[in-house]
Design a binder for these strands. Structure first.
Length: 645
DNA sequence: GGCATCTCAATGAT
DNA sequence: CATCATTGAGATGC
């Protein structure tokens, strides 16, 4: 029933191609030699992400019968701690569909209704000690659920007074269902965590064992004293610096941290901080020279989002007591970053300076290679060799549209923003009743096609036009060591964020000229792409009765885009077998034309200055094993296939 | 539109 | 096993 929504399946509707617009020529800007710089770039940030297939064993929520005869490498766990509440769904006498009010009250008492068929697929050992793959998998599963809960929340009629915290709901669900790792507390490094990793929610750090308290800023471990049983003392494992107070303008490797407690309570009474709990733990860490993980909480001026950067290990060097604003005693701890660690927070502060232009980015060849076509300039940088830019091309943010020969399209007539579930809205209906993006423009789920609202739609301020609004990130084209030019971002990128489309000259593959087939600047949607799971698991979110949705791209025609002569930043994105970006078909109609886009979104949170890569896929003709016509892959991933193309 | 204020949260230690 | 201490992030208000 949903299959008929698209309406593009009839290929005869689409015929000729319209000429390009918004063209602007681009460099070479001149013959000035690029600055010769021997120093390595500020990075590298941690290498890319490993692929993960957390749900590879089953496509659907397993039922009990299946799990019997489906051998799994991982012993399925009983992930529920408590039996399902007696009077929740089981009581047949009561109405199955209680009012929403009733449901809310019930959910308060029993936060997570357990689905006995659900298994996190994470073994007891893996829960205690994780690795990179697990960490990434847990983060992806959490965020997929969070986005889905957010989407469901957005769909509800707004009820005043109800606090929406999809992050807490998703986090709590993952916690109770065993979608977590590194539960064994420890000082020092955490397996699978890399310095420079970024987070957008406190709960993410709880789930992967970086910092377990959901609110408190100091995490600590209680160690038994050597001999006596009663002898227990805390030692700090990690702290989250909120970044609100003194960020010590000068040295990014030094942090002065305020102890906990003493804050105003309900009656607005402040008090002296006491040397207990976290404060005592930090004191002990100082005495014992025990390293403390530091997570820097940052608030960017440009983006309103707060982020957290894992900045590695610090040592507590000093502690003292100070009178706080209210005149009460507060503890202060001076922490100094252990030497020899890859820069993370320091890079971030450096990037903030580049944004202000003081000092300017080293190795900068052009501040904006798009010559103003993109609203945010794309810098061109080389700190590797003497090459002063890629070959000439014309910068354009658009892709050729296709002319619709039948059924001139009409925009929706929503008046305000399009509402999820409103099947009177053409655009929502095409998306199967969903609003594809959450309020801040993050893609909720991968799907065969995302249908955006068009300029003709009567929905002012509608958020369903994400890819039409252009690039919102500060991007940089840079020379890589062994893979030519590449693309990366100065800004941290949240999972699901739109990055850019693949702009260029689009054609139907049946009209493709042979020369395009193996061109470095061709995007061919008909290639074979490694499938992967990104969306939420319906079995994890209890009250959600939705079906598993296909994540595979579905296009109305075999689209091929050439960016050889005309293109945007996407043409610089390199291949990786462990990519951090995926492509998603997006379309909208306007003035009898079909705009068919290949849009790129972040798979996971991406730290600043990490190269952006996607899976180039494999041509259908070149067999899986054949290396004929393929390019050697330098992605460096642990899971590298060795070649691509 | 951005900033300040208000509110309700989940967890682990006790 | 219940209570407590902790502070984020969304909503609301200005």
């Amino acid at each position: 029933m949903e299959g008929s929504f698209g309406g593009y399946t009839d290929k005869t509707r689409v015929l000729d191609i319209k000429p390009l617009r918004t063209l602007k020529p681009v460099f070479p800007s001149g013959n000035q030699a690029p600055p010769f710089v021997c120093a390595p770039p500020l990075g590298p940030f941690p290498p890319g992400f490993t692929p993960f297939y957390p749900f590879s064993s089953s496509q659907h929520t397993p039922d009990l019968n299946q799990s019997q005869h489906q051998p799994s490498l991982v012993t399925p766990l009983r992930t529920f701690r408590s039996p399902p509440p007696p009077d929740n769904t089981a009581s047949n006498g009561d109405a199955v569909e209680g009012s929403t009010v009733k449901r809310k009250i019930q959910r308060k008492r029993t936060p997570i209704a357990q689905n006995p068929n659900f298994s996190s697929g994470i073994s007891a050992a893996e829960k205690e000690n994780g690795d990179r793959k697990l960490v990434m998998s847990v983060l992806t599963r959490f965020d997929a659920l969070r986005r889905r809960l957010s989407q469901l929340e957005d769909a509800k009629e707004s009820v005043t007074g109800i606090i929406k915290r999809p992050d807490l709901k998703a986090g709590s669900t993952c916690m109770s269902r065993g979608v977590r790792t590194n539960t064994k507390k420890r000082t020092g490094p955490v397996p699978g965590l890399e310095i420079g990793d970024v987070f957008f929610f406190r709960f993410e750090m709880c789930l992967i064992g970086l910092h377990s308290p959901s609110m408190a800023g100091i995490d600590y471990l209680v160690v038994k004293g050597g001999g006596g049983e009663a002898e227990e003392e805390p030692i700090a494992t990690s702290i989250v610096s909120s970044g609100y107070y003194d960020n010590d303008e000068g040295n990014p490797d030094v942090l002065v941290y305020t102890g906990q407690g003493g804050n105003a309570d309900k009656d607005k009474q402040s008090s002296d901080q006491k040397l207990e709990r976290g404060n005592l733990a930090l004191e002990k860490s100082l005495q014992k020279n025990s390293p403390v993980r530091v997570i820097r909480g940052l608030k960017e001026a440009s983006q309103s989002a707060k982020i957290y950067i894992y900045d590695g290990l610090y040592d507590v060097k000093e502690s003292w007591v100070e009178k706080g604003k209210s005149g009460h005693n507060t503890f202060k701890y001076k922490l100094v970053r252990a030497p020899g660690q890859a820069p993370a927070f320091a890079s971030w502060t450096e990037i903030q300076k580049w944004k202000k232009g003081l000092p300017s980015r080293e190795g900068m060849i052009l501040t904006d290679l798009t010559s103003g076509v993109e609203s945010i300039g794309v810098s061109l940088v080389n700190v590797v060799d003497a090459e002063n830019g890629p070959a000439y091309f014309t910068y354009s943010t658009t892709v050729t549209s296709f002319k619709l020969t039948q059924q001139p399209s009409y925009g929706c007539e929503c008046g305000g923003a399009c509402k999820p579930g409103n099947l009177n809205c053409h655009c929502i209906r095409k998306n199967g009743g969903d609003f594809p993006y959450s309020g801040n423009g993050v893609l909720v789920s991968r799907r065969g096609m995302v249908h955006e609202c068009s300029p003709a739609c009567l929905c002012p301020g509608c958020k369903n036009k994400v890819t039409q609004m252009g690039v919102k990130l500060k991007l940089e084209v840079f020379k890589t060591v062994n893979r030519g030019w590449g693309l990366r971002s100065w800004d941290p990128i949240r999972a699901g964020s739109f990055i850019c489309i693949y702009a260029g000259e689009a054609i139907d593959k049946s009209q493709m000229q042979p020369a395009m087939a193996n061109d470095d600047y061709t995007f061919d949607t008909t290639r074979v792409y490694t499938p992967f799971k990104w969306n939420y698991e319906p079995g994890l979110a209890d009250e959600d009765g939705s079906e598993e949705m296909s994540e595979e791209p579905e296009l109305p025609l075999p689209l091929v885009i050439s960016a050889k002569n005309v293109g945007n930043v996407a043409r610089f994105m390199n291949h990786s077998c462990s990519p951090n970006v995926f492509w998603q078909p997006v379309s909208y109609e306007n003035n009898g034309q079909l705009f068919l886009q290949v849009a790129f979104f972040a798979i996971s949170h991406i730290p600043p200055m990490t190269e952006l890569t996607y899976d180039y896929g494999v041509t259908r003709t070149s067999g899986a094993q054949s290396l004929c016509g393929k390019k050697k892959c330098f992605c460096g991933s642990e899971f590298c296939r060795g070649s691509f193309g």
